[in-house]
Each structure stands twice: as C-alpha cells, then as structure tokens.
Design a protein around this nucleic acid. Structure first.
Lengths: 345, 345
DNA sequence: CTCGGTCGTGACAACGCTTGCAAGCCTGAA
DNA sequence: TTCAGGCTTGCAAGCGTTGTCACGACCGAG
C-alpha cells in the first residue's frame, strides 16, 4: 500500500524554498512586502510541489469562505442554466467558488430551510426563482450573510428581477390590441407550486384585462406542468369545453406555450388562425415555433446578481435594499394574430 | 454599528449546555457514548443558538471536505441540467455539497487545469462531457482525489457513459435500412471544440457506413453550433450544393437536428419527404418536432455518476477502473422516412 | 470489600493557514 | 560614526473542529 501521499502544505513549500510559512503565505497572496528573489523562490517551490492553499484552513482564520451558494429549484431549465452559466465567470474572476443547492421538491426545500446548510459555509447566498413565505425569508435574514433574491422581489432585501407584472400586462395588451377578448392564462405548475414570477404574471394579466374593461373569468385560468403533455391537453380541453372558449392563450412560459401549440396542432386547431398563443421568456425554442413571446434575459439576471453579490461581500452593509430591475420586451412572431372577426384596434 | 454578531461556535453551545466542547462534538455527530440527558441538553442548546458546524474547521482535522466538485463545460444545456439535477438528491442524502466549475471557453478551461482549484477543496471530482487531452487526464490523475468521468470513457479510470459509437451506428443503420445511401453527419461545434461524444458518434456513423459498403465522403460531414441559425443554414447550404446531395442528415444532437429541420422548412424542403433528419438525445424538443432520435438519459447518467463517486469517496482505492455503461435506444418518429425512390430493405 | 472493566466526560494537541508583533537588516541623514 | 526609519522576515497565537488519552464513577465478580 502506497504511503497515502498527502497534499503538500505551506510548510512543505516553506521548507523547500528555505523560508518561513508566513513568508509563503504572504507571497502566495501577492502581498507587496516580499523581496523579489524570495518571491521567485517561493513561487518556484509552490509550482514544483503543485501546491494549492487549503481554502478550509484559510477561511478558518479569515472568516471568509470564498464560496457563494445558490439555492435553485432545479438546474434542469433554460432559466437556471442561462443564469448560472452567466454567473460563473464573474465569480471565478473574484476567485469565488459556486456551490449549488438543488431543491426539486417540497421535502428538499423544507430540509434546506430547516438545516440551512449554507450557514457558515458560504459568504453569500443567491436565492433563485422561488416564491418564499415570510417565514422562509425571515429564516434567511438571520443566516448571517448577504442574501440576494433573483427573479423575485423581496421587500427591503437586495433583489434582481424583471417586472413580471408589467411585462405580462404588456403581453396581454398585445392580445387585446389584436381584438381578443376571451384570453386564457395558463400557469406552469411545478412540484413546489407556482413560482413568484408565475403569480406576478397572472396579476399583470388580470390588471391589463381590467384596465381594458374585460371581465375576469376564473375558468379561463388553468395550470399544467410544461413537461406533462397530457396535463397540457387536459387544460386545453377545459378551455375548449367552455361555453365561450378563448381565442387566445397567454402561457406563463415558453415551454408551456410550445407544448400547447403542439397540442393544438394535433387537435387540428390552427395557430394563430383559430387560436393565438403568447409565451413568456424567449427561449431558443420560441423562435423555432415562431412563438410571439415576452422576452427576458436570465443571463443578464445572472450577471447582475453576480455583481450585486460581489459588492455585498465586499461591503456587507452597503445599501441593504438594492434592487436591479431588468427590462423585458415583446417579441412579435407568428403565433398571435387578430381575433377571428375582430377589427384590430 | 451593531457588534457584528458572529456565528455561534461549539464553545457557545457547550457553555449553554454546561458541557465540554468535545461532548458537543460527539453529540452532534451522533456518536453513541453520550448519555441521554446530556444529549438532550446539547441538542436543545444547539437548536436555541441556531448552531451549525463549520465544515471548514471540521474538514481541517478530518481531511474530508464534504464537497463534490463538478467540472462542466456549461450549465446551459439539457444534458448538464438533467444530469446535475439528478445528482443533487444523491449528494444531499450523503450530506455532501456540490460545487460547480463552469468552463465555457478554452481560456477558462486552461485556467482550471492550470490552477486545479478543486485540489484540496473537494473529496472527489466529476468531469462532464469533455474531450480531454492525455495531459489533462494526467493532470487530474495527480489531483489526489477520485475523479469520475461522465459521458466520456477514460481508459482505466472510473467512467459513466453511453456507447456513443454503437448508438450512432444504430442510428445510421436505421437510415440505411430506409434506403438512404447519401447520409450527411452534422456535428455540433462548441467554443471548446467537439465533445468526446461528438467524435465517437462520428466514428460510429462511419463504421455503419463502411459496414454497409457505403463509401465515406468527407464533404458529407459538416459542423455548426446548434444555437447559431446562420451557421446551420450555411452547413445545410454546403450539403445541398453538393453534386450529389444527401437524402438524410444525422445530427449529432437534437437541438442541432431541430434547428436543421427549422431551416429545411424555411427552405421549403419537406421533412421527411425530401430529407430525413435523425437526432441524438431525445430531448423534450424532439417529441415536439416529431424527430426520430437516439435516446439517452442524462438523468440516469447523473445518478450513476453520483453513486460511483459516493462509493469511491467511501473507499478511494476500490476498483480503479469501474465503468458504467448505459443503454441507448432508437426512438422512431416522423422525421425519417424511406429515401426517395428506394426500396426499404 | 476489593479489583478489573465499562462508560461518560473533559483536557489538550493537532489540522493548515493568517496576522500582529518584534527583530534584524539596510539605507541615508545628521 | 551613529541612529532613526523603512523593508523584509520569522515567531507565535489563534481560527473551530476532531480524536486521543486520561480520569473518575459506577458496575459486577471474586
């Protein structure tokens, strides 16, 4: 059995370079007060030994962990993938690592809030796309580290988000302009319930209707998980079975919209001739399906969140309620058209 | 300025419970030799103080970090999202955290291998979907921790993968059975070059052709990033401009296949009547586009990789070359059809 | 009633790094 | 020649855990 080669430590580097451990530490962290020749020796020794500092040991003394934690409902979505991918380079530039807590269901979510494993093991937390209860937010408040809410607005706490409500209003207004009056809203039901954005979008949708004097009708609001084709078909069935079926559907999310278009096609209901479909996100698949949609940029959101979190780590009690509001825009494509027999505007 | 409330430490818990730090440690780790009443007192105190152990301090002494690192080219893909999401619960069950290193381009990748930031800061590393050079693999070899290769076969190292070559062979055979003889292969070009899978699939494709006595023709092999519609259109243009254009295209990946179908539709080339398209992956979008494809399950891959990594952490010098080979299967849909004017079999 | 053996607990020495402090060196000015 | 003051370096004290060891209490057997 080989002698279980241990990782080299600073002491090894120090010995090899003929200096003290302190000097190695100072050198490796780039502090100025190290003479050039010593610096060279130390760096050479470190390279030769393939040395890397133990973040654990150093964070023990500095109190900083060098880790940013992210709490996400899943990684398996366009939004999370784009946002986190954009976040990566920022963190790396600041020499921070990213640890991810995935909470796919309510049990995992409860466990996270119960144990708060990030506590003491990260310098900051990014909370993505949840619809948190007040207790959960309170729990995060005394986590002892900066918490940034992403794709969610939390009162008095730093957040990065789009104005989902206003964006949805704009979407619904687009349909109203096209002469639609019976407009359904389809929510994306997840294992952890509806997201914060989901709620906001529905509210915005309703506001636009009310503003236009269109009566609200709860039977026009349905829900289905985008991935579950049968559920989508059932939700569509509900809508089509109404005494007065809708002429347009606003899907909370592109994947759901696309799934809906697919279902409509199978039922030989032409889009947009007999049914307009509007999405939200502008995922790549939207263009492929010629889907009119409300665009947002999760990559930008990830970047903004990253910058915010970096500034909070640098100065934890900076502006405690800094908000970054990102823009959305309507991307008109071919899945929406004037309502049958309606004058546009 | 508030007195910068520090996190409570074991000493605080110990004081509150009127016991020593050692006893707190033993209690919290569930060691048996603690009397019931002391255990109760300690647990109560810990809960009251909202105490959480510092992983850093404990890993300093145990030598284990409680962290699994994952090296991924991006998070922004169906494959990575599914695989990592599936991995999560496994790790959490073992009380491990997941830290992710995203290397979207060659510079980041080089930086990772140069500094090996995971060194000393994780108990094991999962390497996803890369096409690593021998030097890179050698570099990982002396990382001093178990390394599991996912969606990639590395000789003599633990890997979890599908037989991309055989799967691609099966795909190409499907097209051959349909009477196609001019079959193009479209690779997905990423910023870090072609993936391991990409190479393997092309090889498998060629084997199937050779086996069937169809001559290889390099002009039938093109490449484009799936997200870049113009590049896809250009690649398609190249193929259509050939003296003898293909009657079928095998796209290395569903997103690329779908992008291709979209481009074909815009050019009024019917799929599958005038051009068969075959994909690889069976992403959700494949069903939406009625795409025939070779299915694999990244979620299974993530799970298998997770189990493998757990077993290696438990026993680092278990079977050093344990391989897990996952199945693929052809999913026939509507995007492939007999070649124009050919007898099927 | 004594004695080996558990059992529960506390003291204390690591683990690998950072950082305040002091000491040594060298420089240039007096 | 001396001495203040700036640079560079080493020493040693932690940081918050774990794990070894020793100690005393208690138990049952001889």
């Amino acid at each position: 059995m080989p002698p279980a080669r241990r990782h080299p430590t600073m002491a090894d580097v120090a010995e090899r370079a003929g200096v003290s451990v302190s000097t190695v530490s100072r050198t490796l962290r780039g502090l100025s007060n190290v003479s050039p020749d010593v610096r060279a020796r130390v760096e050479k020794a470190a390279r030769a030994l393939n040395f890397a500092v133990s973040r654990h040991a150093s964070s023990l003394v500095t109190g900083r962990t060098g880790v940013v934690a992210a709490l996400v409902p899943t990684l398996d979505s366009w939004f999370m993938g784009s946002a986190l991918s954009a976040l990566g380079p920022l963190l790396r530039a600041a020499d921070l690592e990213l640890t991810v807590y995935v909470t796919p269901d309510l049990a995992e979510r409860a466990a996270f809030f119960e144990r708060l494993p990030a506590r003491r093991n990260a310098d900051a937390l990014l909370v993505f796309s949840f619809d948190l209860t007040d207790e959960e937010i309170a729990r995060l408040d005394d986590l002892g580290m900066p918490v940034v809410y992403v794709s969610q607005h939390a009162d008095g706490r730093p957040s990065v988000y789009v104005d989902d409500g206003a964006a949805a209003e704009a979407g619904t207004r687009h349909l109203l302009h096209l002469g639609h009056r019976r407009i359904a809203f389809m929510q994306s039901a997840g294992p952890t319930g509806f997201s914060f954005s989901s709620h906001e979008r529905l509210l915005g949708h309703r506001r636009a209707l009310t503003e236009a004097g269109v009566p609200l009708d709860d039977s026009l609001v349905v829900a289905a998980p985008a991935a579950d084709r049968r559920a989508v078909a059932e939700a569509l069935g509900e809508l089509l079975g109404l005494r007065e079926p809708p002429t347009a559907v606003f899907a909370e999310q592109d994947e759901l919209a696309v799934s809906l278009i697919w279902t409509l096609r199978r039922s030989r209901i032409e889009v947009p001739e007999r049914m307009s479909v509007l999405g939200f996100d502008d995922q790549p698949v939207a263009e492929l399906f010629d889907l009119t949609t409300v665009a947002q940029s999760p990559a930008d959101m990830g970047r903004e969140a990253g910058e915010l979190v970096l500034s909070l780590i640098a100065d934890p009690d900076a502006d405690p309620a800094r908000h970054v509001l990102l823009p959305t825009r309507l991307v008109p494509r071919g899945s929406t058209a004037p309502a049958p027999g309606a004058d546009t505007d």
